[in-house]
């Protein structure tokens, strides 16, 4: 449809119909004659909102990371400096960054492993009613309350909770105890250990991994898998050489979410985990109790930079087509 054709149509209409009266009528005619004005009126409110409220805030935040805090008075001096970024690379803060990125990577790997069978079954075998059931089965946990999900795991992982009970019933308490006595991953109980933090992260972000993998697998023709096995490949070989490469963009797309969400979360490690901080908690502590907004702002630049590189890599792998 070209613009000429459209204006031609209005000329004809104008020849037949009387000119519209009233304010609304002439406004409508004006907008029809000038699509640019209509486009401007449609785009102005959302762009003003997102541009001013959101982008404006982000710039305000980035600007603050170049301010610094006076160590003696505790006041923020509004002079541009890189001193705050120097503080960011102290050993204690680097520890926090490394810990968070490691956790994000492990959570991403584990989610991919757990998500794949669900996504594959839903994409290839589920039909009709089962398909809808699988879809809702992923959507409901995705949308149900984030805090309630964390709370549920606090109940499960508590020392007196259902998991300890289950291990005792199966006569496997020794296994749980020896796991908890391990240095880094262990702790007093699961709800105050990195293992607990890890399980909850995987649980909460899992639906974000299932949906893109399923979307990628939906596009794999079933006869491709059959052809592979007809040609003598074992199921393992089919998976490695056919399914996995085709699902990879979906996995990468899902990992954008699991990775980014883990990098920025501060509530899960606060409620289920040890006292050792993650990036999100460090940001929260710096801006709250410590009152060091420049350092908090500098900390938030870390996930932004990491995600920038991650998105760039993901785009090159074609992950955005799977979203």
């Amino acid at each position: 449809m070209s613009v000429q054709a459209v204006t031609g149509a209005t000329d004809v209409a104008a020849a037949i119909l009387p000119k519209r009266g009233g304010f609304a009528g002439s406004l409508s005619d004006l907008l029809w004659r000038r699509p640019g004005l209509l486009l401007f009126l449609m785009l102005a409110p959302p762009l003003l909102w997102l541009g001013v409220v959101y982008i404006g805030s982000l710039i305000a935040l980035l600007a603050q990371s170049f301010f610094s805090i006076d160590e003696f008075s505790g006041l923020i001096s509004r002079e541009l400096t890189l001193k705050t970024y120097g503080d960011l690379f102290q050993a204690a803060n680097l520890d926090i960054i490394v810990r968070t990125v490691t956790m994000a990577a492990l959570v991403t790997l584990a989610s991919a492993v757990v998500a794949f069978p669900i996504a594959y079954y839903a994409a290839r075998y589920a039909r009709g009613k089962w398909k809808a059931l699988f879809y809702l089965g992923v959507m409901l946990p995705l949308w149900s309350s984030y805090l309630v999900k964390i709370y549920a795991w606090k109940l499960i992982l508590a020392k007196e909770g259902i998991l300890t009970w289950l291990f005792a019933k199966l006569h496997l308490s020794w296994l749980l105890d020896s796991w908890l006595s391990l240095p880094v991953v262990g702790g007093n109980s699961l709800s105050v250990s990195f293992t607990g933090t890890f399980i909850v992260f995987v649980y909460v972000w899992l639906p974000f991994m299932i949906l893109p993998i399923q979307a990628a697998l939906e596009r794999v023709p079933g006869n491709l898998v059959e052809a592979s096995s007809d040609l003598g490949a074992s199921p393992g070989q089919t998976f490695r050489n056919v399914l996995f490469p085709l699902a990879l963009p979906g996995i990468v797309a899902g990992s954008i979410f699991t990775f980014s969400l883990t990098l920025g979360d501060y509530i899960i490690p606060q409620i289920i985990g040890t006292s050792r901080l993650f990036i999100g908690q460090a940001v929260y502590a710096q801006q709250g109790t410590a009152g060091n907004i420049p350092l908090a702002a500098a900390f938030t630049v870390v996930p932004i930079v990491i995600m920038g590189f991650y998105l760039w890599g993901a785009k090159r792998m074609g992950a955005f087509d799977a979203l």
Binding site: Y54, S57, L61, A296, T300
Partner: peptide, 10 residues
């Protein structure tokens, strides 16, 4: 797409 904490603190 950006972590919520960034939106929040911004």
């Amino acid at each position: 797409a950006l972590p919520g904490i960034i939106t929040g603190i911004a």
